[in-house]
Design a protein around this nucleic acid. Structure first.
Lengths: 145, 145
DNA sequence: TATTGTTATACTCTATAACTATA
DNA sequence: TATAGTTATAGAGTATAACAATA
């Protein structure tokens, strides 16, 4: 094995620093990290249940309720009972929600690009390709490796 | 900008999954993540103060006290008042501490290698090179980017 | 007066279980 | 009875402030 620091020893602090870097951007939009995650997850397609949303962003279903309350109150998401099953709440982005998401994401990507600019072209490419591949793995496939 | 998911959206879940994957290995050695971090940080050179150790692993100085208590009680670290400044505690690994660290690290690297084996040779190289470069940056240099 | 380590306290986050309303 | 959402509670993790010893 090539000599290198532990993966986690590098990734965990980097992860924390990235979050710290992005929180000010989110705060400008009055978004918590979970709220931003919700806006991202709802970007593509509406979701039929809150539990599905929670699972897709790695949160507990009880943990996002306050987040959804706030986003709904601010008109950033729609949250209506499913006529076919009135237990479920269909979730989707509003136009305003999409606007806020776009604005926040632009700021975040701007910061990220400045960080990635420190890498050589080939390292940057390998880093992003590898990161996408690893991030696409199911959680259990990593923990059970 | 090339289209890609947010960096943090990929790194944060990956970071969590990595930690979840490694915790069982650490538990076999009765080590918490912070305890393991301490053993890694003390590996190279002894440190003159607990505050310096805490800072080097991104922890609060009050948070590692219980960790150090436990490691000292188990004979994995030495923790003696500095004769030149009796306020400070000089910290170093014992031979047993080094043995436990090596054993835990072997298990952790084994898991990591199985994960990295999913990447192509060139992506793996770029990923590790980029990760080392980004992890070497001071925390503020990332947050202020 | 400042610094090192420590303890005590409060605060945030998270996980678990219990409740309601629908099915 | 099972499920979606909600609420309440407790637990872990973390941050802040106050304290004792030493400089």
């Amino acid at each position: 094995m090539t000599d290198r620091p532990d993966l986690a020893a590098m990734i965990v602090p980097l992860s924390r620093a990235l979050v710290d870097a992005e929180l000010p951007v989110l705060r400008e939009h009055d978004l918590s990290m979970w709220a931003y995650s919700v806006l991202l997850a709802l970007d593509e397609r509406p979701l039929r249940t809150q539990a599905a949303l929670a699972e897709s962003i790695g949160a507990d279903k009880t943990r996002i309720i306050g987040v959804l309350d706030d986003l709904q109150r601010r008109g950033l998401i729609d949250r209506t009972p499913d006529p076919a099953d009135r237990r479920a709440r269909v979730l989707s982005l509003t136009a305003e929600g999409r606007r806020v998401r776009d604005s926040a994401q632009t700021g975040i990507r701007h910061k990220e690009e400045r960080l990635l600019a420190r890498l050589s072209v080939e390292d940057r490419r390998g880093f992003l390709r590898a990161l996408r591949a690893l991030a696409a793995l199911p959680h259990e496939e990593i923990t059970n490796a």
